[in-house]
Design a protein around this nucleic acid. Sequence first.
DNA 1: GCAACTTGCATCATTGATGTTGCAAGTCGT
DNA 2: ACGACTTGCAACATCAATGATGCAAGTTGC
Lengths: 204, 204
Amino acid sequence: MLSSMKTERRPKAGGGRPLRADAERTMTAILEAAERTLSRDPAATMEQIAEAAGVARTTVHRRFATREALVDALAEWATRRFAAAVDAARPDTAPPLVALYQTTANVLDVKVGWGFAMSQASSVDPEVARIHAEVRETCERLFRRARDAGVLRADVDIPWTRRVYYALIHQAAQRREELDTGALATLVVDTLLRGAGTPQPDRL
Amino acid sequence: MLSSMKTERRPKAGGGRPLRADAERTMTAILEAAERTLSRDPAATMEQIAEAAGVARTTVHRRFATREALVDALAEWATRRFAAAVDAARPDTAPPLVALYQTTANVLDVKVGWGFAMSQASSVDPEVARIHAEVRETCERLFRRARDAGVLRADVDIPWTRRVYYALIHQAAQRREELDTGALATLVVDTLLRGAGTPQPDRL
DNA sequence: GCAACTTGCATCATTGATGTTGCAAGTCGT
DNA sequence: ACGACTTGCAACATCAATGATGCAAGTTGC
């Protein structure tokens, strides 16, 4: 009927066969440049991205048919690294506090420099959305374990805590110039658990 | 010699004389729509903004000569409301805890203009930058008072705490559908002061 | 070394966003 | 009620970003 009136463009990146070594390097350079450029200005042009990658604009178009395809590929690429970083911390098996610290450190290592790609989490791409939901679930599972182990208070709102946790990691990532990953992770976990106030339970 | 080769456009908004009532309403509608629209998609078109404001695109162009002028005006407008909200909470004279709570509530109320307009804080406009710096100073002054009064721990990193505070407010604002301003302010202050952990000082 | 592949460059077409203007209809202030 | 102002609409001009392509020169893999 009215379905698919838009002129379909070829996928190009997606079901691609293995690339030659130089093409692979170019691809990575473009994705990294896209992250750098788009995190500074989400409306940056393909021209600017190409320039940042040190390639011609036409080359970018040869690898990614459309701007959207590039952004999608970037989101997927970064999201996979993100998920891998979380998994590597054994968030479901290590003791809650250890898992929390390790996860934080790992994510900070990856997130350092993937601010834009992560903000595209709500991408239409179902695969990206799925992975993000998976990580979110893992995170909340970890928090529930922490609560049951007495690390978190029994009355905490898990989704809210997760959002605060994400926000703290984001803030910490902004300070990567000043402190190393370990110190940043400590800062995040410490702030999340203790807050900034003195231990006087009857304040409000 | 080569100075000012660009074709100068008339300022329009800036040194304007008082507007008629309907024009004033339109102006406000446009700025609010711009905030709403641009916070969702920073690359949104003038068309989309006009549509969100319920006016014709040409009307937007009559009020703001260029897209840049609109964004600048938006940044300044939102920043002034932001600063006014903070001032209204008497952050320098009220008792620290009261000031903290009141400031949070006021800012949350005004937070119509944060997502986008506040991210434009690093605007080239020196006036906007000045006001932001002023608010930042007020905020850190309040935190120092809180620390001296024993509300915050003596060893807290004030700039870090301020950033965490901003981030918490941002997160809370995302939930304004579920809770009212008072509850949100309580949540923010509570999280900032106590964190999410159990009161066991010897954890790490 | 040779074939296949990739890249840069120049060039072109297309599209959508931006910004302007004239005019008719509507609104505001007094 | 009247003049001044504002708005929507239609039409137009401009321009920058996107995307495609042919060709020559340079790489890669075997």
